[in-house]
Simulated assay, not measured.
Amino acid sequence: MGILLQIDSAKMINAAAAAVQAPEKMNLWSLLDKGGWLMYPLYFLFAATIFVFFERFIAINKASKIDGNFMSIIRDNIITGNISAARSLARNNSSPVARMIDKGIQRIGKPIDAIEKSMENVGKLEMYKMERNLSILSLIAGVAPMFGFLGTIIGMVQLFYNINSTGNFELSVIAGGIYVKMITSASGLITGLIAYVAHNFLTTQVDKTANRMEAASAEFIDILQEPTR
């Protein structure tokens, strides 16, 4: 009987020790909540990054779509002298390339330099429309890590002030305070990294569309210099 009591007591002691040593489970939201009030600006910056990225991605993707036969049809209509059909085709297409070509068609009969200048002006306006709000992502990429570092610095100041006030130099207290304050730095860096990648990705998409516009402009000028049928 005594042996059984000893075994039961040993099991209870081991279970209690395991319960004490078991690490505290923490989900993502409770972990982020420990970052303090500076996490709220980071939440806002993260939400702004996601919103601007998808809004610009949809707009740029829509602007880059154009029928592969668009310029071929424009060429056939212009060479055959059917200017009204060429302009109707350009006006019924909502892409930047079509709007630029439409401006060139409207200037047919004027010197080539004047046509190129008017198309270039339309191209600049279309580029501005596509690049709108991309500067927000660039700003977030620089500001978000700064907010994170600021939160860490404020947290470290508070931690060492409390240590100085209470005289509690236990390693667990110091380590716990440091890891909690590093949450803001990690959040700021992640948000800034996402904004940086999003900005560069969208800039690449804009450049691709700009190249299509330049190619279409050059092809249109070549069409104008071909003899009519």
Rank of each mutant, 00 (worst) to 15 (best):
G35N: 12
S64M: 13
I79T: 13
N27R: 05
N162Y: 06
R91Q: 10
A63W: 04
I194Q: 05
A85M: 10
E55F: 10
T80A: 09
Y43C: 14
A144H: 01
A48G: 14
E120D: 14
G81K: 10
A141D: 04
I115L: 04
V157Q: 05
R212E: 14
L89H: 03
D33Y: 15
I83Y: 13
T228K: 12
E226A: 14
N211E: 10
M182A: 06
N69S: 08
G81P: 01
L150T: 10
A144K: 06
I153F: 15
E126H: 02
L171R: 11
D8T: 12
S94K: 08
N69V: 03
L189W: 06
T152D: 08
L150P: 06
K129M: 13
I3H: 12
D8Y: 05
A22H: 03
D67Y: 09
D207E: 13
I73W: 01
L38N: 07
T191Y: 04
A90F: 01
R56T: 11
A144N: 07
S217K: 13
Y179E: 10
A47K: 09
A86S: 13
I60G: 02
S30I: 07
Y161I: 07
L42I: 08
I78F: 03
D207R: 15
N93V: 06
A86M: 10
N211F: 07
L202D: 00
R229V: 11
F53S: 15
M26K: 15
I74N: 00
P41I: 04
F160N: 07
A85L: 08
